[in-house]
C-alpha cells in the first residue's frame, strides 16, 4: 500500500471535468485506488466518477490518495501530479 497527501488547488474543486480526467487516469492502473478527505475515515473508490462526485472535494481541501497493488507507487505519483496540474 502506498499513500500520499494531495491538496485541491483548482477553483472548481475535484468535480466536473477534473473529476472525469482523474477517473480516466485512475482506471489505467491495476491497483485499487482510493481517496479520503484528510481527517475523515470514509474511503472512496477513485475509479468511480459517482464516488468522486459524492466525495465532492472543493478548492482548498486536502485528501489522502492511496493505491494498493502491483503498480501502486506509480499510480499514486502520477495521479497526485495530475491533481497538481489541474491548478495550472
Amino acid at each position: 500500500m502506498y499513500s500520499k497527501k494531495i491538496s485541491v488547488k483548482n477553483p472548481t474543486g475535484l468535480h466536473a471535468r477534473p473529476a472525469s480526467d482523474f477517473v480516466a487516469a485512475a482506471a489505467e492502473y491495476k491497483s485499487s485506488v482510493t481517496l479520503k478527505r484528510a481527517g475523515e475515515d470514509d474511503e472512496y473508490n477513485a475509479k468511480s466518477i459517482v464516488m468522486l462526485l459524492a466525495l465532492g472535494l472543493e478548492q482548498g481541501e486536502e485528501a489522502i490518495l492511496t493505491a494498493e497493488g502491483d503498480d501502486e507507487t506509480e499510480a499514486v505519483e502520477v495521479l497526485a501530479s495530475l491533481v497538481e496540474r489541474f491548478a495550472e
Partner: peptide, 9 residues
C-alpha cells in the same frame, strides 16, 4: 457514458 460504466455502481 462515464456514469454508465462506473465500477462502484
Amino acid at each position: 457514458a462515464e456514469m454508465l460504466s462506473d465500477p462502484v455502481i
